[in-house]
Write a protein that binds this DNA or RNA. Structure first.
Lengths: 252, 252
DNA sequence: CTTCGAAGTGTGGTCAGACCACATGTGCCA
DNA sequence: TGGCACATGTGGTCTGACCACACTTCGAAG
């Protein structure tokens, strides 16, 4: 007696779940921040085991599309889009990414983003940028606070660029670079200069001077790169010692 | 009698597995392409259930760090680094990425990559590029073959840039754009022109003319973008109808 | 001797149900 | 009124069985 498989897809249950949730998102039934049904219930409604459902949800969580909160529930990710938090770190560990390479990527991307923001930014973005610049000057004596506004400033630039994909990439790289920043911001003595720089970038964007914004952003980031000792090692000598010891953690 | 928890980390089993494998990779014990022990055996050696082990492996597979082959085994990913295959597609579905945005990201990144390749490329890369250009001219009558060499050409440029992170990003975007290309390559009548273009890019890179390489690559990609109807829609009118119907699949 | 199909073996995939751990709400007690 | 203990809901883990796929082996047909 042959098995009865009906019209059932013999595709992996995992993908079955992923595609199902995906369609729910695309149809608008599920929006960012929404909670999906409890596993037991959801599994029953999909006619699969809870284990398989969990595999699928875990898959999406790994890519940052879903957030799982123990004891609370599973939610569609909200906030700025980004690839799985750990992805860069893991892939980096596998392929030996260096911190200077991450920074280089960031410089290239963010410079362009600044130019795009100058071209396409809307009034609301300009206002938000102005606010952050002001806050940066205001939190001059609190490195931690300063960092927050710094991050927000750059995030707004990303949004203003009108290209969420590039924004997501930057977001991923930035979060991977975050730990290292905390250390250096503490000892930074040039927050005032940094704030000035941001203000200039803001002005360039606001006046829709794309080229200027691009150059300023690049200049700003190169300085930050040097401040954190993440320059590209020159062929000769050892130059920076940061990527030698400590098993060269990707996010280091 | 309270339970005996020893020095055990109460961290999620998933992360326990991920970190374990990660350390195996970082220590060089596990190399790209290597096979990890069978689940039953590996789970026993880690003193966790097979289910938990599977969760962890699935997590890494979702991010492209591992490849699972039913009936064969689980392997550390090899080949060009890239983020999880479906990640862009899923995140795109969630945040409404448009195809023109993906193409824009590609143009920006790949132009810079070309410039970097011109600066840092090694002889071996130049040779490989030359080969691909030759193959492109040779497969002028086979769109499918042509596409392959086209992809390889761009991949080599990525490698030659010396920045694996940017290369990985491009790889991810490219694979997401792949389906769409198959359709248009078929009807493309300008393969010869395209091949010429690649040759010029190759020459610019070989002569270490970064600026030229950048401009040529940008020009090349803009033409490709137009050929596939993925221009950025202008504010007025409907312009391209591609991203309206068909539930705007990210990779469409 | 060669060819090829049918088992055998190893490995990932799915299932079921029980129980653990965390977060939050609810109501009793001080 | 303020807390604290408990009830409840939800994700996390475990166990052990069985299914599905890929590859190997070996015997029977040619």
């Amino acid at each position: 007696m042959p098995r009865v498989k009906e019209v059932e897809r013999h595709t992996h249950r995992t993908m079955q779940v992923v595609n199902h949730i995906r369609s729910l998102i695309e149809s608008g039934t599920l929006q960012p921040g929404d909670k999906i049904p409890p596993e037991r219930e959801f599994a029953r409604s999909l006619k699969i085991s809870r284990a398989s459902l969990r595999t699928g949800i875990g898959y999406m969580a790994a890519m940052g599309v879903m957030k799982i909160r123990h004891g609370v529930g599973s939610f569609v990710a909200d906030g700025p889009p980004q690839f799985g938090t750990a992805s860069l770190s893991l892939i980096g560990a596998l392929h030996g990414f260096q911190s200077w390479q991450m920074f280089e990527a960031r410089i290239i991307l963010e410079s362009h983003l600044a130019a795009l923001a100058a071209e396409r930014g809307k009034q609301e973005h300009f206002s938000a940028l102005a606010d952050e610049v002001a806050d940066m000057f205001a939190s001059m004596n609190s490195p931690a606070d300063y960092l927050i506004h710094d991050l927000l400033f750059h995030r707004i630039v990303s949004q203003a660029s009108g290209n969420p994909i590039l924004a997501a990439i930057i977001e991923t790289i930035t979060s991977a670079l975050y730990d290292a920043r905390l250390k250096t911001v503490e000892r930074s003595t040039d927050m005032r200069e940094s704030a000035e720089m941001h203000r200039e970038i803001y002005r360039a964007i606001r006046t829709r001077n794309g080229k200027e914004a691009h150059n300023l952003m690049e200049q700003h980031l190169r300085m930050a790169q040097i401040a954190q000792g993440m320059e590209r090692p020159t062929g000769r000598k050892t130059s920076s010692a940061l990527h030698k010891k400590k098993h060269a953690r990707t996010a280091a």
